[in-house]
């Protein structure tokens, strides 16, 4: 093989490798497959908007603080915000519900288009009556939901929210949970997740956007 041929061969290999790299970068850069729902929420939390469209909700049957039955059919066609918490929550739930109440006040009449749900992750202790008493401290448009533990678990899972019991030092228990507020549009798609400390009036533009879409 002469020097010219050798040089040609090397040049061909180099061009081939380069082309391969370009093809891989341009065509094979597929978005990652949608992982578990909890992981999706983690992505959402990091970026503020979901990477993939995730439909949330599913079929469920719970009761509100007035004892009325609520199913997925009651939520159809309306945008909603959902927060999973419990009334014996000492640190984050009450301030988050206060922030949600302020947000509703700031939205004004537009807030009436929104369904606002506080789903109890402590259904054993949070009876409709307990929810009714507790929610009297917040905006009356917040609807509290409770019911069978499996049903609550199903709804939480459908949103990528996690919860579980944790024992207290001198007996009793508290609940570990995802302190997140889920924004769901009128078609049932998860359009955003706010951490409990992001639920201020700073979230107004995103809520307005969701209400207009």
């Amino acid at each position: 093989m002469g020097r010219r041929q050798l040089a040609f061969l090397f040049a061909s290999i180099a061009i081939g490798v380069l082309l391969g790299a370009v093809v891989q970068a341009v065509f094979l850069k597929k978005p990652k497959r949608a992982p578990e729902t909890a992981a999706v929420s983690a992505t959402v939390l990091a970026t503020g908007t979901p990477a993939t469209v995730q439909m949330v909700g599913g079929v469920f049957q719970l009761v509100d603080q007035q004892g009325r039955q609520v199913t997925e059919r009651d939520l159809q066609g309306r945008p909603r915000i959902i927060f999973f918490g419990f009334t014996a929550c000492p640190d984050v739930c009450a301030p988050t519900l206060t922030a949600i109440s302020e947000l509703l006040q700031a939205l004004g009449p537009e807030a009436d288009k929104l369904t606002v749900l506080f789903v109890s992750v402590d259904p054993e202790r949070d009876t409709p009556e307990q929810l009714r008493q507790y929610l009297a401290g917040f905006d009356p448009r917040i609807r509290g939901l409770t019911g069978a533990p499996e049903m609550v678990a199903k709804v939480a899972q459908a949103h990528g929210a996690w919860f579980g019991k944790a024992p207290l030092a001198a007996g009793g228990y508290t609940i570990d949970h995802s302190p997140l507020v889920y924004l769901v549009d009128s078609k049932g798609a998860l359009v955003g997740v706010l951490n409990h400390d992001q639920v201020g009036v700073g979230a107004l533009p995103r809520l307005r956007e969701m209400l207009r879409s």
């Binding site: 000492p90 984050v92 996690w162 570990d176 302190p179």
Partner: peptide, 21 residues
Amino acid sequence: ERVEVHTVSMTGNVMRMRAMP
């Protein structure tokens, strides 16, 4: 009824509260 020291931490998406006996 009781006053306990608790610590709260975020692991991923979950807020965990633990008693500190």
